[in-house]
């Protein structure tokens, strides 16, 4: 009993740098069942229509992480994405290589930028040499300790998050979602002895360039939720070290700013984050905006019930203790 068959127009990105002047899209029309994965269709195209189509894949079961690509502009595993819903939504299927990594040929990218960022976080346990792992006890962690990084080991390093990330696209200093999620995993691993050092270094290593746009979390095929782990890292970094960078100063400054009147004091926040020098740097822009929006330099009203808000701060905002 087969599902209703579907005539699927598939536009595939084709490009061989060095030989082709520019990328082109080749259209293949296939008759498939709606639940057919995109990867199966691409392999059929290669087997029956065009043996020169180049793609990377291996397990076909969302385990190896090899077949990440852009499917109708979303970073996805091709083996895990059925064709039917894509055609239904878009009327066609556009398959392109991942973003933020140079194309080697067709759907295959050079993953070097992704792995370079991963190396930067030193993704291995740093044990204290004075306290080696006890012999015969491979896992000296409690279930509660493991639960703190329960999601991260699910990562299959497919780079879908790296491909989806606008901060990666705009700034080579940003390590990317996967590297930071993995860093989080080592920071909260009780066996790792370099927590403090890792947190201090990542503050200047691009942590605060995360836009918390959550595109990585939506792209991740394994529900690792990188953006939430990056948030956790930010709070841990502030607890460990306070506001040493514009990013952490901005987060702390914002929190203090709201405590005073309950509403944001926009101009004061610029000073809190950037200091006096920064305020001077923003002066041109500020004046430009003030011409149209004269109230931006005035203090907002204080909310009614400000004492309630300040009690919440007293109850729940304890000063950093210097330890994550």
């Amino acid at each position: 009993m087969g599902a209703k068959l579907l005539e699927a127009p598939i536009d595939v990105y084709r490009f061989e740098p060095g030989r082709d002047a520019a990328p082109r899209y080749e259209r293949y029309t296939l008759t498939v069942e709606p639940h057919t994965p995109v990867l199966t269709a691409l392999l059929k195209i290669r087997a029956e229509m065009d043996p020169s189509l180049t793609l990377r894949y291996s397990c076909r079961s969302s385990i190896c992480g090899s077949c990440a690509m852009q499917i109708n502009s979303k970073s996805r595993l091709a083996c895990q994405t059925p064709i039917g819903p894509e055609i239904e939504r878009h009327g066609r299927l556009v398959v392109e290589p991942m973003r933020n990594q140079p194309v080697l040929r067709d759907l295959v990218v050079d993953q070097a930028p992704f792995w370079r960022q991963y190396d930067r976080i030193e993704p291995h346990l740093k044990l204290d040499p004075r306290h080696p792992m006890p012999e015969g006890k491979p896992n000296p962690m409690s279930p509660e300790e493991v639960a703190r990084f329960y999601e991260t080991p699910r990562c299959i390093a497919c780079a879908a998050c790296f491909s989806a990330c606008p901060a990666v696209e705009a700034d080579p200093d940003f390590p990317g979602p996967m590297a930071l999620a993995k860093l989080y995993r080592f920071v909260v691993d009780p066996r790792d002895q370099a927590h403090q050092d890792r947190l201090v270094r990542i503050q200047t290593g691009g942590l605060w360039l995360c836009l918390r746009c959550h595109l990585c979390t939506e792209a991740c095929p394994k529900d690792v939720r990188p953006s939430e782990r990056i948030r956790d890292l930010k709070e841990l970094a502030i607890a460990a070290q306070g506001g040493t960078e514009p990013g952490s100063r901005h987060a702390i400054g914002f929190k203090e700013n709201i405590r005073e009147r309950g509403l944001l004091q926009e101009m004061k926040l610029v000073r809190q984050t950037e200091g006096l020098a920064g305020l001077v740097g923003q002066a041109g822009q500020g004046l430009r905006m003030r011409r149209k929006k004269p109230e931006i330099t005035k203090k907002p009203r204080a909310i009614e019930g400000l004492d309630q808000l300040q009690t919440l701060y007293r109850e729940l905002d304890h000063p950093a203790e210097g330890e994550p």
């Binding site: 502030i238 929190k255 009614e304 309630q308 808000l309």
Partner: peptide
Amino acid sequence: FPTFSCCGSGFVDEANLTLNVAINAR
């Protein structure tokens, strides 16, 4: 409601998640 406060705008959330949840629960 003149009692409503700022939502924390994602920044308070980064500095102190629990505090931010409480502010918005209020």
